[in-house]
Design a protein around this nucleic acid. Structure first.
Lengths: 232, 232
DNA sequence: TCCATACTTCGACCGTAGCCGAAGCATCTT
DNA sequence: AAGATGCTTCGGCTACGGTCGAAGTATGGA
């Protein structure tokens, strides 16, 4: 009760199951309405409304009104990073949700982590980029190499544009399912966006999982090869 | 309610003020008894006992019996890292505890972050090590250089011993007060321990702050110089 | 053996926070 | 203007979890 920042406040904010579910739903990166979030939390609209007000007051969520809808998103990527890190911790301790639903495998394979690709494919992508020297990995830090700048130009991503943002270009994010790093930051965001643009993959309706088309999957795997074809 | 790890459980665990205070107290790195933790949490012994049981069941805490005392510590350094990252997040949002006590300045200057040095001095130390090429920093990742291995040998730290541990040698840890990285990992731990051994600094009784002796402070600042003498 | 210390368990109390029905605003549609 | 949709606020209910007093268990020392 005397020193340092108050971790209890945000712990309590995240500690309610309904709120945790809503936050998890928002990890999909899409802005969601209060009604959608109520469904995600398994509660009525009224209850969701009070929860959302609390989350907003705690600055975990941001909202913008659009017509008669109110769209909520995570306040910024620091929130996403925090949530993913807590997820990683929870997964490591075996604090899994009670029923590992049928969607679990798809989720482990490829999912959205706030705004970038996570799961097996996310980890594979980063591994491949490091192996080809496009990204430099030291400890758990990542940096774009000169060679990498060319690589991404070929893929159709203009790194120069991304550099204008104050947000870091490369950032490692611990993957809770793989327990290894995947690529976050504005570059990670741009890569995922490009997969959607090219039609290689699409988001799913009510989940964070990412579904690749057969053609998209082929292209993706060809673009990001790994030395040992299966596992490490 | 369907996918991914359960962040609500650990959120709730951290979300109670009494528990949060006890966890914060344990960030000091020392093992504490149930009685001491009850005081830290501002609750009676009985209440503390139930809280501690919950924290242990949630695998945030480990205990070992020693005589009629029961000593509690954070379960492992993953817990410490999680807590510090939540603190960093909370500090960034201005979720500070209500009264910024008189100890705050000392805490910002130098404190223990589970088992290594944090605060202004912790950040300064890492900056200096990077500047002299002992540690390589890429993004937010850290790695020991060959040159650094010699440097630490001069300081009296045998890096080879540390390498035997499975724990990473260098790890960056975000400092909640400075909002920049300081050095964690077994090397960070060994450095702090050496400061205590040499009598340069000592822990304080009920707080995480680290107090340098005048002589120790002089030596520390000489050992870890920074280009711009004051601030950046 | 007996008492003191350290801690846990039990039982009961209480407050708070979550929850929903109903009513109230606000915004869009026709 | 009237109705529909999206969301918030109010009021009251309920239950869960935190809290402590009191009693119970283990360890250490005299």
């Amino acid at each position: 009760m005397k020193e340092g920042p108050d971790i209890a406040q945000i712990g309590a904010l995240i500690g309610d199951p309904a709120r945790a579910n809503m936050l998890t739903a928002l990890m999909g990166g899409k802005a969601l309405t209060a009604t959608e979030l109520a469904a995600a939390g398994g509660i009525t609209l009224q209850t969701a409304s009070t929860h959302l007000a609390k989350l907003e007051a705690g600055r975990l969520l941001a909202q913008r009104k659009q017509g008669r809808h109110r769209y909520f998103t995570l306040a910024d990527d620091a929130v996403g990073k925090l949530l993913e890190s807590i997820m990683g911790f929870a997964a490591g301790r075996g604090h899994l949700r009670h029923q590992p639903g049928p969607k679990e495998p798809a989720l482990r394979k490829a999912r959205i982590c706030y705004d970038h690709l996570a799961g097996d494919y996310g980890v594979r992508m980063l591994d491949s980029l490091v192996a080809r020297g496009a990204i430099d990995a030291v400890g758990d830090g990542l940096a774009l190499t000169a060679k990498g700048e060319d690589t991404f130009k070929c893929i159709g991503i203009n790194v120069a544009d991304l550099k204008t943002s104050r947000r870091p270009l490369c950032r490692s994010c611990l993957d809770w399912s793989e327990r290894r790093a995947h690529l976050a930051g504005s570059l990670g965001k741009a890569l995922l966006a490009s997969f959607f643009d090219k039609g290689w993959a699409r988001r799913t309706a009510g989940s964070r999982s990412v579904i690749f088309s057969p053609e998209g999957e082929r292209r993706f795997l060809a673009l990001f090869p790994v030395e040992t074809p299966v596992a490490a």
